[in-house]
Amino acid sequence: MIFFILKRLMQIVPVILGVTLVVFLIMQMVPGDSAVILAGEGASKETVEELREDLGLNKPLHEQYFSYIGNIFQGDLGHSLKNNQPVLEEIMIRLPITMELAFFSILITVVLGLIAGIISAVKPYSFSDIGVMLVALLGISLPSFWLGLLLMYIFSIKLQWLPVAGWDSMAHIVLPAITLGAGGAAIVARMTRSSMLEVVGQDYIRTARAKGLKEHVIIYKHALRNALIPVITVVGLQFGGLLGGTVLVESVFAINGLGRMIVDSIRTRDIPMVQGGVLVASLVFVFVNLLVDTLYRVFNKRIDLN
């Protein structure tokens, strides 16, 4: 197990290289010149050139890239082009907010998804099953920004139960977390259902029945633990989508998180901020995946043998 974790940690290096390279190249390809945007409208050609020189944007591409990589491994993600703040510092202010949002969203994804999936699977093709699966289908189909606006309209504006936007109290977390977690919950519900139905047809469930166990013991003790194994993988994959989703949700609910920071930086062509943001987001994703795979092995010891 330790070997497995070490091996996975070593894989992070190529991930960093790949992510930075791709982001770097994309930022070069997007139209718009950071120096021009930074200098502001109506700035003279000389000012722009001076700025370019200062920022090192006139150097050849590969030189820019390699110096950037070199700095990363020293823990320096550069400075924002906009306000010259260290990128790492800026990220560290916003990362906890996004992580908090992600955590509560995943919580909603898992809890809501599992409960719905189990309700469906216990009595397949019943009214409760069909009802739950219809809601799940909606959950998958609705775009999160639309769902966010809808929830905001109902609970904040009409009913006035919850704050419209911002990030100050637990009450602020509720709507964004639901918005972000709903799609995942729907997918987890469907996965749990099909995984449970498969497990319930297994021989060892028949053995458990032959033992005289009550139906709820069979479901929770014998079936669920086995059914969870594929669900863990799905939850892990959901996390990736979730990081993407924060971009939208943070914008809708005006939350000053990492996702919104990246969007704003893209708009101002603040390349170091974009690169830093994406890099950190990717690292988080890699670590979460490692966590999921480790959990998967704990739940399913048999794969250790192969």
């Binding site: 021989d203 633990r225 086995n226």
Partner: peptide, 24 residues
């Protein structure tokens, strides 16, 4: 019936590989 299953009448099955719960 559940009080009889596994108590007064019990069963063993063909596939020892799949008839036991793999995670317990």
């Amino acid at each position: 019936l559940r009080k009889i299953r596994g108590n007064r009448i019990s069963m063993i099955f063909q596939e020892p590989m799949t008839s036991l719960n793999p995670v317990i």
